[in-house]
Design a protein around this nucleic acid. Sequence first.
DNA 1: TCTTGATTTAGAGTGCACTCTAAGTTGTAG
DNA 2: CTACAACTTAGAGTGCACTCTAAATCAAGA
Lengths: 141, 141
Amino acid sequence: MKIGELAKRSGLSAHTIRYYERIGLLPHADRDQSGQRDYDASILIWIEFLDRLKTTGMPIREMLRYAALRERGVGTEAERSALLEQHRERVRAHVVELQTCLLVLDTKIAGYAGKDQRMKDYDAPIPQRRKPAGARQAGAR
Amino acid sequence: MKIGELAKRSGLSAHTIRYYERIGLLPHADRDQSGQRDYDASILIWIEFLDRLKTTGMPIREMLRYAALRERGVGTEAERSALLEQHRERVRAHVVELQTCLLVLDTKIAGYAGKDQRMKDYDAPIPQRRKPAGARQAGAR
DNA sequence: TCTTGATTTAGAGTGCACTCTAAGTTGTAG
DNA sequence: CTACAACTTAGAGTGCACTCTAAATCAAGA
C-alpha cells in the first residue's frame, strides 16, 4: 500500500503520515525500489490506536513515549501499561467534568426555553431599577 | 476588584484577562481614576461560564459569537439558545466517543495485566517463527 | 520619600499539531 | 512518447490560544 492509499484508509492526510513518521509516531516505513513508502495493512491498527489517544487528548509527546516503548518491545510492558492507566484516569476525570458542564448547559438552555416573555436577559439580569414600562437596553454587561 | 485579584479568584492570569477583553470575550472593564481596571464580582459568573465552554472544547470564535449576542441583550435569546444546544450535542457526542475510547483502553490495559509471562509484546504479536527458545527481539513494528 | 510590587499599553514570542510549498522523481493511462 | 497524477525531501507557513516583554505609570508600606 502506498501513502495515498493509506491516507484514504486511515483518515490521515499523506502530509500528516509523513509528519508522524518524521517525529517517530509511525515507524520508518519500508520503501520500494524507487524509494516510495510501501505499507503493510497492519499499520492501520496502530494508527487507529494513535487516533484513540489523540481523541482522548493525549499530547503527541506522550504518544511518542508510548511509541518508543512499543518499538523497544519486550520488557517495556509495565511502563506502557502504567502510561495507559494514568491516561485512562485523566480521561475518566475529563468525562466527569464534561458531564458536569452538560448539566450546566442543560440549565442554561432550560432558562432560555422558559422564555414566555417573562425573562429578558437570563445571562445578566440587571437590578430592576423600578421604572414604568419603557425598559429598553437590557444592559447585558 | 483589580485585575490581580480577579486573576486569583477566576484562575485566569491577568495577561489572559486582558487578552480576553481585547478580543471581546470579556466586556470592556470600567477603569478607576488612574486608568486601572475595576471589576465587579459579577464578572466571575461570566468567566466561570466561559470556562465551561472552554472545557467542553468550544473554540474562542464561537464563544465570541455568544458573547456578542449576550452584549446585544434582549432579542438574541433564541440564537444564544440555539448556539448552546448545538454545542451541547457536540459535547454529548464527544462524551460518547470518549467512553468508547475508555473501553479500548480498558481492553489494552487488561492485555498488559494478563502478563504472567504468556505474552511478550501485546501490541505487535509477531507471527511466531517456530524456533527453539532463543526468542530475542520481539520485533515490534 | 523611597522602594517594591501591581498595573497599563502595544506588540512580539511560544508551543502545539499540523499543513503546505517547491522542486524534483516515479508510475501509469492513452 | 506524452501527459499527468502520485510520490519524494527539506523546510516554511498556519491557526489557535495564549504568554510574555518593554517601558511607563500607579499604589501602598517602612
